[in-house]
Amino acid sequence: MMTLLTIFLVMLLVLTAFAVERTKDLLSAVIVFAAFSLVLSVLWLILKAPDVALTEAAVGAGITTVVLLAVLSKTERYER
């Protein structure tokens, strides 16, 4: 059961990483990147590294998203 969950999460991780790279809408890319960080945080927890998981959730899903959104408000929304 645990192995199945890990395989599912890793596949979701790869999928979100591809989605961040492929999408042209930068706002969607930032939101998908937050989802990527969240999945990675759960994976750290499964790998028995709760310290890294907490930092990943706080920095990856929190601060990085906010800073990238602030940068996005200064530039354009769509990639050319």
């Binding site: 907490l54 930092t55 706080a58 929190g62 601060i63």
Partner: peptide, 13 residues
């Protein structure tokens, strides 16, 4: 788990 950096990041958020 956690500590100064993680807690500070949450406070900053």
């Amino acid at each position: 788990p956690g500590g100064g950096f993680s807690g500070g990041a949450i406070l900053g958020t």
